[in-house]
Nucleic acid binder design. Structure first.
Length: 759
DNA sequence: CTAGGGTTAG
C-alpha cells in the first residue's frame, strides 16, 4: 500500500494516468475499489475527460462509499449538478450508505437545489454531523437569506476556524461589510483562509485599499491569497495594478496557477495587450499548466477584443462540452463586436440556457450595429422569460434603443416599467434617459432628468449639450456648458464637439470661434465642427481656408459639410472641389453624387447631371434607401418612397392627394431635382409626392389625435422639398410636425421651421 | 475530506 500512494503521487499527466490504468487492467486489478478510488482521484486532479473517468467508475464491480464519494467529488469539480444528483440516485439504489463526506458535497454542488438535502437530513436526524451544518451554513451564505446562515452559526455548539471562515464569506457575499469585519476581529484563531476571505471580500466591496491592507498584513500568503488580490484588481478594472502585483508574485518565487492566469489575461484584455497574454500562454506551456475552461474563456475574450475572431472561435470550439453560459456569452459578444449579428444571433438562439448577461449582450450587440428595433423586440421577449430579471445594463440598452428610434411612447413605457419593477438606475442609466428624451425631441424631460440627478459625470453634460445642439437650442447648450465649468467638471473632446455642433446648428459664429480657440489641443473632429460652422453661416471661403490650413488630413465629414453648403449657396467651384475629394475618400457613398448632381441641376447644367448619374451607375453606386418612420401604439411604421405595402396605404395616398391640392393653392411647387432623371415629368412629381417623410406624416395624420405633435424620424437628411412641404402642411393642418433627420430636429409650426439652416 | 481565489454584457 505504501508503494501505491507513492505511485499515484508521482503521476502528473494524462499519459502516465493511462499507463497506470492499462497496467491495472492487465493485472485485472481495476475491479477493486481501492484502485478505482485512486484512479478517479487522479482523474479529478488531472482534469480527465468525463467519459474516461466514468468508465473507470463503472469498472468497479461493487463500488463502495469511497468510490462513490470520489466520483461525486470529480463531478462536483466539473460543475454539473445533473451528474452529481444522478450519481447520488445510483448510490441510493446500490444501497450504499452516504457518509458525512457525501452530504456536504451534495449540498455544495447541487446549486440552488442543494438545500433540498437540508430537510432530508433533518428527517434522518443527521443535520448536525461533522461538516454538514457547515455546508448548510455555506449554502445560505451563497444563496441567501444570509440571516439563516447566521442562525446556523449561532446554534453551533462547537465552532472551528472553517465555520468562522464560512460565516465571514457569507457576510461579504451579502454586502454586510461591518459584520464581516467585526466577526474577523472576534475570531479566536485565524488562518490564511480567514485573511484571504477578508482580501477577496473587501475587493468584492470595491474597497481595494482595505483589501491591500489585509493582503499586506497577513502573516502568511498562499497562492490563493495572491490570486484573490490580483483578481480583485482585475475585477475592479485596475489592470495595471493586477499586472504589477503579478510581477511581484513572480519575483517572490511563487509559481502562478490557472486562476492567476485568468486574472492576468483578463487584465491584458482590458489593456488590449495581446503580447503579454501570449507570453502567459507560453509560460503555461513551459510550466505544464494545462489551461482550464476559465483560462480558455479569458483567452477567447482577449482574442476577440483584439479582433482575432479565428483564434477566438478556435478557443470556443476547443471548450466543447466544457463550454458554459459564460463562454457562449463571450463568443456572442465577440461576434457583435465585429458586426457579425447573424452569427451572434445564431449562437444566441441555440443556447439552451440564457442568463441576464446573454440577453444584455445580444441587446447591446443589436444596438451597436444599428438594429435598435431588434434590440427592443429582444427586450420584449426577455421580459416574458421567467427567472430573468432585467437589470440596469438591460435598461440602458433598451432606453438607448428607444432614443435611436425616436420611440417616445416605448420610452415612456420603459420608464413606467422601471418604477413598477423597482429597477434603480445609477448615473449611466440616467444618462441614457437624457439621451432618449433628447433624441425624441423632448428637451424639457431631458433637462428634468438631468436636474434631478444627485451626481452627474461628463457624459451627463455631453449628452444634454448634444441634445440641445440637435434641437437647435444653441444658447441653452452654451448655458449647460458654462454650468459645467462652474461645477468643475472637466470637458472632454466630446464636450467640445457637442458645443461646437450647437453653435453650428444655431448659427452662433462668434461663440463657436471662442470655444474653438479655447480648446487646448483641437483634434480633427473639432476642425470638422468649425468648418461646418463656417459653412452653415454661409462663410464658405473661410471654411475652405480653414480646411487648407488645418494641421491634419481632412476627413469625409469635412468635405461633406462643404459640399452641402456649396449646394445651398450654389457654389459650383467649391462643390466640385469637395465632391472630387469625397469621390476619392468614399467612392461608395451615394449621397455625395446626389448632392453634386443637385448642384448642377439647380444651375441648369443637365449634361453634368447626367454625367454624374452616369458615373454612379458605372461605379455600381446604389442610392442609399431613405427611410422615415412614426411610432403609433408602441409600433414603428416605416416607409420608403412610393411605399404601398402598408395596410392603410390607400387611405394614406388619399390624404396625400388632398394635401397636394391644398398645397398647390398655397403656392407650393414640387422640387423635382431630387427625382431620377430618366423618368417622365409626371412620374417625377408622383415620386416627390410620395417621399418617405410625406408618407409618414400622412399616416400620422390618419391615426393620431388632432392637435398632438406628429413625430417623424428620417434616417438620412430630410430633403429640401419635404422641408418646404412640411412647413405648409403644418399650417394647413394646424399641427406641429417634428422631423428628426440624421443629425438634427426640424420643428414645423405655423408655416415655419425651427432650424436655422439655409436651403 | 468542511472554509479562501476564476471567465462574459455596458
Amino acid at each position: 500500500m505504501v508503494q501505491l500512494s507513492s505511485i499515484t503521487r508521482k503521476i502528473t499527466n494524462h499519459d502516465q494516468l493511462k499507463q497506470l490504468h492499462a497496467q491495472l487492467v492487465k493485472n485485472s486489478l481495476h475491479h477493486g475499489n481501492y484502485w478505482a478510488a485512486q484512479l478517479i482521484c487522479l482523474c479529478k486532479r488531472l482534469h480527465a475527460p468525463p467519459l474516461y473517468t466514468r468508465r473507470i467508475f463503472e469498472s468497479a464491480h461493487f463500488p463502495n462509499v469511497v468510490v462513490f464519494t470520489n466520483m461525486l467529488k470529480y463531478y462536483s469539480k466539473l460543475g454539473n449538478p445533473m451528474d452529481v444528483s444522478s450519481l447520488f440516485g445510483l448510490m441510493q439504489k446500490a444501497n450504499v450508505k452516504p457518509d458525512s463526506f457525501v452530504y456536504p458535497l451534495l449540498i455544495k454542488s447541487s446549486g440552488k437545489a442543494g438545500i433540498a438535502f437540508h430537510a432530508h437530513l433533518l428527517k434522518l436526524g443527521r443535520s448536525h454531523e461533522k461538516f454538514i451544518d457547515n455546508a448548510i451554513m455555506s449554502w445560505y451564505g451563497k444563496y441567501g437569506p444570509v440571516e439563516s446562515a447566521w442562525n446556523v452559526f449561532d446554534q453551533m455548539s462547537v465552532k472551528i476556524v472553517a465555520d468562522w471562515n464560512s460565516i465571514i464569506s457569507a457576510c461579504w457575499n451579502w454586502g454586510k461589510t461591518s459584520k464581516a469585519v467585526s466577526l474577523f476581529g472576534l475570531m479566536p484563531e485565524k488562518n490564511v483562509i480567514s485573511w484571504t476571505a477578508m482580501v477577496s471580500g473587501s475587493a468584492k466591496a470595491k474597497d481595494l485599499e482595505a483589501a491591500r491592507r489585509y493582503f499586506d498584513q497577513m502573516p502568511e500568503r498562499s497562492i490563493v491569497s495572491w490570486n484573490a488580490m490580483i483578481s480583485g484588481y482585475a475585477q475592479n478594472g485596475q489592470a495595471e495594478e493586477a499586472i504589477q502585483l503579478y510581477n511581484e508574485m513572480l519575483s517572490s518565487g511563487l509559481r502562478p496557477d490557472e486562476t492567476t492566469c485568468v486574472a492576468v489575461i483578463s487584465s491584458c484584455s482590458m489593456r488590449g495587450d495581446r503580447a503579454l497574454a501570449d507570453s502567459l500562454v507560453m509560460m503555461m506551456n513551459k510550466n505544464r499548466i494545462s489551461p482550464n475552461h476559465f483560462v480558455k474563456t479569458a483567452l477567447l475574450d482577449i482574442y476577440a477584443k483584439c479582433g482575432d475572431l479565428k483564434m477566438a472561435r478556435e478557443m470556443f470550439d476547443d471548450l466543447g462540452v466544457y463550454g458554459n453560459l459564460v463562454t457562449w456569452n463571450a463568443m456572442i459578444a465577440a461576434y457583435t463586436r465585429v458586426g457579425d449579428l447573424t452569427s451572434a444571433m445564431e449562437l444566441f438562439q441555440n443556447m439552451l440556457e440564457k442568463d441576464v448577461i446573454s440577453w444584455n449582450t445580444m441587446i447591446a450587440g443589436c444596438l451597436q450595429n444599428g438594429e435598435s428595433a431588434v434590440a427592443i423586440d429582444l427586450f420584449k421577449e426577455m421580459i416574458t422569460c421567467k427567472d430573468i430579471k432585467p437589470d440596469e445594463v438591460t435598461m440602458v440598452g433598451v432606453i438607448s434603443a428607444c432614443g435611436h428610434l425616436g420611440a417616445l411612447e416605448m420610452g415612456n413605457w420603459v420608464v413606467k416599467f422601471l418604477s413598477e419593477k423597482q429597477i434603480k438606475l445609477k448615473i449611466g442609466g440616467h444618462n441614457s434617459l437624457i439621451f432618449m428624451y433628447s433624441k425624441c425631441g423632448s428637451m424639457t424631460h431631458a433637462y428634468k432628468v438631468f436636474q434631478e440627478m444627485d451626481i452627474r459625470d461628463v457624459i451627463s453634460y455631453n449628452t444634454l449639450i448634444a441634445g440641445f445642439a440637435a434641437y437647435g437650442s444653441g444658447v441653452e447648450a452654451l448655458e449647460v456648458f458654462s454650468k459645467m465649468q462652474k461645477e468643475d467638471i472637466e470637458p472632454d473632446r466630446i464636450t467640445y464637439i457637442s458645443v461646437l455642433t450647437a453653435c453650428s446648428h444655431s448659427g452662433l459664429l462668434e461663440e463657436g470661434k471662442q470655444v474653438f480657440d479655447s480648446i487646448v489641443d483641437p483634434d480633427i473632429d473639432h476642425y470638422a465642427c468649425m468648418v461646418d460652422l463656417y459653412c452653415r453661416v454661409g462663410r464658405l471661403d473661410e471654411a475652405k481656408r480653414l480646411i487648407d490650413v488645418m494641421p491634419m488630413d481632412p476627413h469625409a465629414g469635412i468635405y461633406g459639410s462643404l459640399l452641402n453648403a456649396s449646394r445651398v449657396h450654389t457654389r459650383i467651384d467649391l462643390g466640385e472641389f469637395a465632391a472630387s475629394k469625397l469621390f476619392e475618400l468614399e467612392p461608395e457613398n451615394s449621397g455625395n453624387y446626389v448632392l453634386l448632381s443637385n448642384i448642377y441641376a439647380r444651375a441648369g447644367r443637365w449634361e453634368d447631371v447626367d454625367r454624374i448619374r452616369g458615373s454612379m451607375k458605372k461605379g455600381g453606386v446604389k442610392k442609399t434607401t431613405g427611410w422615415s418612420w412614426v411610432e403609433h401604439d408602441g409600433e414603428l411604421h416605416r416607409f420608403i418612397v412610393g411605399d404601398q405595402s402598408h395596410e392603410r396605404s390607400v387611405e394614406m395616398h388619399r390624404v396625400l392627394a388632398e394635401l397636394k391640392k391644398k398645397m398647390k393653392v398655397s403656392g407650393y411647387i414640387a422640387d423635382k431635382d431630387c427625382a431620377l432623371r430618366d423618368v417622365e415629368e409626371e412620374e417625377k412629381e408622383e415620386m416627390v409626392g410620395t417621399h418617405s417623410e410625406k408618407l409618414a406624416v400622412a399616416f400620422a395624420l390618419l391615426v393620431s389625435e388632432p392637435g398632438t405633435t406628429i413625430r417623424v424620424v428620417k434616417n438620412l437628411r430630410i430633403c429640401r422639398d419635404c422641408h418646404d412641404a412640411m412647413k405648409i402642411i403644418s399650417q394647413l393642418e394646424s399641427r406641429e410636425i417634428m422631423v428628426r433627420d440624421n443629425n438634427r430636429f426640424h420643428s414645423f409650426k405655423d408655416g415655419v421651421c425651427s432650424c436655422k439652416d439655409h436651403w
